[in-house]
Write a protein that binds this DNA or RNA. Sequence first.
DNA 1: GTCTAACCGAGACGGTACGTCCTGTCTTAGT
DNA 2: ACTAAGACAGGACGTACCGTCTCGGTTAGAC
Lengths: 197, 197, 197, 197
Amino acid sequence: MTQSYPRLVRGRPRDEEADGAILDAALALLSEQGYGGLRMEAVAARAGVAKATVYRRWPDKLSLAMAAIGRIPELPPVDTGSLLGDLRALRTALAALFRTTRLAGVLPALAAERMRRTSAAARIDALMQARYRPWVAAIERAIARGELPRTASADARLIADLLAGVLMQRVFFTGGPVDEKTWKKVVSIVVGGLRRG
Amino acid sequence: MTQSYPRLVRGRPRDEEADGAILDAALALLSEQGYGGLRMEAVAARAGVAKATVYRRWPDKLSLAMAAIGRIPELPPVDTGSLLGDLRALRTALAALFRTTRLAGVLPALAAERMRRTSAAARIDALMQARYRPWVAAIERAIARGELPRTASADARLIADLLAGVLMQRVFFTGGPVDEKTWKKVVSIVVGGLRRG
Amino acid sequence: MTQSYPRLVRGRPRDEEADGAILDAALALLSEQGYGGLRMEAVAARAGVAKATVYRRWPDKLSLAMAAIGRIPELPPVDTGSLLGDLRALRTALAALFRTTRLAGVLPALAAERMRRTSAAARIDALMQARYRPWVAAIERAIARGELPRTASADARLIADLLAGVLMQRVFFTGGPVDEKTWKKVVSIVVGGLRRG
Amino acid sequence: MTQSYPRLVRGRPRDEEADGAILDAALALLSEQGYGGLRMEAVAARAGVAKATVYRRWPDKLSLAMAAIGRIPELPPVDTGSLLGDLRALRTALAALFRTTRLAGVLPALAAERMRRTSAAARIDALMQARYRPWVAAIERAIARGELPRTASADARLIADLLAGVLMQRVFFTGGPVDEKTWKKVVSIVVGGLRRG
DNA sequence: GTCTAACCGAGACGGTACGTCCTGTCTTAGT
DNA sequence: ACTAAGACAGGACGTACCGTCTCGGTTAGAC
């Protein structure tokens, strides 16, 4: 599918490897120091690249940070065949992602930027929604399978926000537990509420 | 109950008005610029105070920011006599708080600091839990009144996180609507699920 | 001659010991750190005194420094009976003073202040002239004794400046030696020139 | 004679004009405020340069001050053909330098630093000796011409210190006059003493 | 086989904020 | 009226980082 067009531009082509090195460096530093501690000079040094090479590719720190976050794998596609199985798998996958990638350290920083800079909000929203898509998909599959009432179909995103939201709330704000047992209660309440409604 | 002890400290006492002026300045800047844009020099200038006077009271930016956030009023005590009334009132009060105070701009920044600095986590947790207390209280009152099953009493905090969490999720991460109509659905799902369980 | 009047002023009398403690502290710090490194807070701390107590006695740093320098002993009265003996003794005494008291570290700092602040010049001049008086006195005695021609009497201060000046020049500016042998040459040139003239 | 080598250093070259602007600013402030009143921020502002640009070139205030003093012209080469002519010219030139450049305000400050910081002494000595070289040269020429006895040749520097020293002594310490008439007496004493010796 | 344009590393640039330090003044309670 | 203690406004310190710019040099397609 990919095809090699003759380059229209002249001059020395960009070093394609640099992109990866820069993003890896940025992500590592973002994970270690948070957004506020992310230093462009440190990114360049760690990537073995000049600072201008970073700025040539991303115009500022936020853009770089967002691109770096894009390197964090999304939740793996989950489809166990049942709503309860999917939700269990999603929580486990999210916990694993938070444990192995420091995504958890980066998301609130991104949210903070989002609240602060209107110009950044749209871009960040797109990134966030992509990451929450597996949750919505699981709800929609459950409706299609008849596990949830058809009336819930308009509210798939709301239900996803309700489920994912309680995890975020605890991880980022109240620090409460997000273990398997707690999760079962949440699922029971929400799914029960939906079926009853 | 309060009693006037002789001052044990010597030397010129701190200017008590300065505390308020500094916190007001910090809060204003926090609201306008966010945590990342909070400048100690700007705080001092706006408060009409020397920079050293700020640092004498709060050792760093995070401490100052947290103290400033302490000036934002908490959710007003809500007790309408019914769970649904309380929850409606809480959402309205929170929306008003976010609309009038830029608390919304500050919370994710605080969460970001919390994820980044272990030493900050405990202090921030305390502040956060105080702010979420009205939610827990409303749930506990509902259980006491018999509106929610007695079996839910162990999970009051989880339920509060579930309800508040979906609001936070939408405000900070997915940008979805948090209006009255949406809220009714959320309350219906969660309360329905609890009663059924 | 001194007489004890009843104190006319009311209130607590000044702690007379504090003067000495402050000046000693100032002199010690002046010697260790130079005028530029003299810190009023350090003086107060070292003297075991509050800062205000220092400022009550001396209005600013320069005044304090000058008063502290006043504690350095002047050249001892020298009168060996001959010009050559006096000059030898004066050089030895000055060298000892520079070796034991760090006066040498303080004089150029004072000279620098003198060049900078017109208001300080007169006070500093008075202090300096007092310190150079033994040189003038030795010249005047030599004239009285007939060791130097009577025509030199108008120039006693110039001659003193010539003799002391070469020592200052070497100590402060060119770093050349100021030993006994060098001094003999200087004395021989100057005294020879005066007798010949 | 000058030759153009390829630049060995990489990166953007330093702005050569900035050097001059910084030194001029430093010298102006040094003249107006003295060494103690020299402010790095004021230097940068006056030079129209960022503070870091100053620190990139000179690591501290003393280095900058010394470099700035290097901009003050040295005594012009003096060679009138006779010792008395040279000495008259040197005094006149030095007086002019002190009158037009505030070198006089800076030298004692430098001497004070020299006494305070061993590490600074060698550098300052070199600067000072360069400035006193014309005096030594005049003495050496006089010896070569036979105006002074050949036996004085070992003491050229001492004689220079004696002559320049009395001027320094009066300008910096005792405040006595350094006019033409006074100078004639000094020259007469010193030259007379040397010829007689 | 040049020419030219965009790239590259390196590092200086103006600007801004940091957190610390010091001066000289002021404000307490206590002697 | 003094004392110790220490807070105050103001302002400089030297460091660090941002995003831009300017070098000499490299690497490609266009001529």
